[in-house]
């Protein structure tokens, strides 16, 4: 009975790792970087937990071993040196990743404007075409999503493609996304914005270049050469 329950619980937990909103199934460089950092933190966190648990068990089972190691040395290593090394590694990884995710000193990319309002997402493409709660992307290309809001602060998040960024009234934020291959991904509002926050979702469809041009009403020959003519200022 216990084994059955454990398998059921484990299955339930693991099933949460799948699906259109799973950050553990990255489909783009930004999300992959975040996923890597998540795995590093999981492994490091597990190792720290096991080490602390081991010391705790030793304190009960073999107190003499700890005494021989010395109280001061235990505090110095366990409380200072090891946490500092672990934290320094994590901070370095996070800084390096943050620099890559931010859109600075990088090439121009296709720009799509995203306007959030309670409680829907409005996307506008270079040719002027607009969609609601559905974002079309060309697969395999960098796209800058120029975010802003009409009313309150919202949060733009496509977990399988990249990190979160706030959509703020009167201000534009830019997040760079790239979908490695065509497919449909989920997006959510990641900043509480009122009674309609939870259902404020949108879909992201990544297409081949020709299909993307068709979807947003652009002539097919323009699909390849519209990198720099997006609208919206930085």
């Amino acid at each position: 009975m216990f084994r059955f329950g454990a398998i059921l619980a484990g299955g339930l937990v693991l099933s949460a790792c799948d699906g259109p909103l799973s950050a553990l199934q990255p489909e783009g460089p930004a999300a992959r970087g975040i996923g890597t950092l998540w795995w590093i933190m999981l492994v490091a966190g597990t190792a720290i937990f096991l080490a602390v648990a081991a010391v705790l068990v030793l304190a009960f089972v073999r107190p003499a071993w700890l005494r021989r190691f010395g109280g001061t040395r235990l505090i110095l290593w366990g409380g200072l040196v090891v946490p500092l090394v672990v934290l320094a590694g994590l901070v370095t990884a996070a800084f390096a990743l943050g620099e890559r995710v931010l859109v600075v000193r990088q090439d121009e990319a296709l720009r799509i404007e995203a306007m959030a309002r309670r409680w829907s997402w409005h996307f506008r493409y270079p040719g002027g075409h607009e969609t609601v709660d559905l974002l079309h992307l060309p697969a395999g290309r960098d796209v800058d999503i120029v975010l802003t809001s009409e009313d309150v602060i919202h949060g733009f998040w496509v977990p399988r493609l990249g990190g979160k960024l706030d959509a703020i009234p009167g201000h534009t934020n830019i997040i760079r996304l790239r979908a490695d291959r065509p497919g449909t991904y989920g997006g959510v509002c990641a900043e509480y914005c009122g009674i309609g926050h939870a259902p404020m979702r949108f879909s992201v469809e990544a297409h081949e270049p020709e299909a993307f041009a068709r979807a947003v009403g652009l002539p097919p020959d323009e699909a390849g050469g519209m990198a720099a003519d997006g609208e919206g200022g930085r």
Partner: peptide, 14 residues
């Protein structure tokens, strides 16, 4: 020093 030294080398704005 550990948490704020980033002001010397991290990107500040988009």
């Amino acid at each position: 020093v550990f948490s704020f030294a980033g002001v010397f080398f991290l990107s500040t704005c988009q």
